[in-house]
Design a protein around this nucleic acid. Sequence first.
DNA 1: CCTGCCGCCTGCGCGC
DNA 2: TGCGCGCAGGCGGCAG
Length: 292
Amino acid sequence: MPELPEVETVRAGLERHVVGRTIDTVEVLHPRAVRRHLAGPADFAAVLRGRTITGARRRGKYLWLPVAEDALLAHLGMSGQLLVGDPARPVSAHVRARFTFTDAGPDLRFTDQRTFGHLVWAGGGAVLPPLIAHIAPDPLEPAFDEEAFIARLRLRHTGLKRALLDQSLVSGIGNIYADEALWRARLHWARATDTLTRPEATRTLSAVREVLGDALQAGGTSFDSLYVNVNGESGYFGRSLSVYGKAGQPCPRCGALIRRDPFMNRSAHSCPRCQPRPRSRRDHRDLRDRST
DNA sequence: CCTGCCGCCTGCGCGC
DNA sequence: TGCGCGCAGGCGGCAG
């Protein structure tokens, strides 16, 4: 569930609470949590024991903790949490892995109700884990190339929201912020990417950056206790949402009732007046042909 | 190559 | 009260 602002909030917490500390013990409480570590849970634990965490980095929704030239790579999936706290507190039912440190201070727990998240040892991954080479830069990192993104977006033959959710095109955006950004840009989720004008594509990117930045300022979005920072606290961007989860409620801009449409076995939320359904791709093509 | 679909999991709220 | 269903912040793998 966590998207870029939530993962960044977690990353910042890890930077503060685990960087510079040396791992003492590693317990894998659910093998699925390390399913991408092909050598298995015992190897995962063995390779991390005694290693010192030297940083906390992130690209999109992935984060990793460098240890020398290598890294511990994590993805929170839909319900993952990384929590730092008193090592003596009870181990709750959804804790999938637990790390203690040689200083006997707060431990680190990977909690994940739905087990879509995972941890994996990323050899040679301190700067950028090879396992996530297919993940595009996110819009808040220096490596993000605005011109390249706009060009690639307009070359896609798909719907606009689909494209925003494609982590190999731009990373960090999930279902909440895709809907919120499209509302801010006044564009419909089904708009064909190959009919976007350059200004529309630029507007989309600006809206994405704004909504991610605003959410980050607020410490992320929490609907419930499933998304929390490393200290177990919720972010408060939820109160700033305009369309996500607001079906039947008035659009904050024009008052029309927000609609929810089925989309990729999930949902797309939009304002029917601010974000009118696009003309068919055919109409766009005709229009373009006529104007050139 | 690109695009789209499917499965992977648990838990909650809803209508019957 | 119980039960089935739909829904939930995401990804990798694979087919066409």
